[in-house]
């Protein structure tokens, strides 16, 4: 496949050409010189501006990072304070809730006692009123009954006896 022999044969005859005009070396030197001069100004300027832009971007980013770090620290401090405040508020609230509950309980107990007392008082008053009414009714009924029975039983002899007994009692 690969014929080394022919390759060697084909390649013999490499040499350096030293003919200055034939190699166009002077023109090439001029072209390269002008190109280097031009690129140094043109491309160099572009690259310099690019580098400055990159550095400015980096500086900006670093500054923003520093600012953000400061802001973060401040915010974290505020957060800690807020948490402490929240804790205080919470414990205060718990205490107040506890005391309010106790007060409420006590008030309720007192109220209940008062209501009970009132109820008992009412009951007693009602019982007294009812028994008074009953007594009056009974008395009235007794008097009525007595008045009804009286005409039959209270004759002169009976009257005399009563008067005698009353006199005896006085005497």
């Amino acid at each position: 496949m690969f014929s080394l022999h022919s390759l060697v044969l084909a390649n013999h005859g490499f040499s350096i050409n030293t003919n200055i005009l034939d190699t166009n070396i002077i023109n090439l030197a001029i072209v390269v010189g002008v190109l280097v001069w031009f690129l140094r100004g043109f491309l160099g300027g572009i690259l310099q501006r690019r580098r400055e832009a990159v550095l400015a971007d980096l500086r900006d980013a670093e500054q923003r990072l520093a600012e953000a770090t400061t802001a973060l620290a401040a915010a974290q401090k505020e957060l800690t304070q807020a948490q402490a405040t929240a804790q205080t508020i919470l414990s205060d609230g718990r205490t107040r809730a506890q005391s309010i509950r106790e007060q409420g309980e006590q008030r309720t107990i007192a109220e209940m006692a008062r209501v009970q007392q009132d109820a008992q008082a009412n009951l007693a008053a009602e019982a007294a009123r009812v028994s008074e009414a009953l007594r009056l009714e009974t008395a009235r009924a007794a008097v009525a009954k007595a008045l009804e029975a009286m005409p039959g039983r209270l004759d002169d002899a009976a009257q005399a006896r009563i008067i005698d007994r009353s006199l005896d009692a006085l005497g």
Binding site: A10, G13, F14, S15, T23, L28, V31, V32
Partner: peptide, 13 residues
């Protein structure tokens, strides 16, 4: 191709 002085190197062909 335009800037390197290639002709300094003479090839057999």
């Amino acid at each position: 191709g335009a800037l390197i002085p290639w002709k300094l190197i003479h090839l057999p062909s």
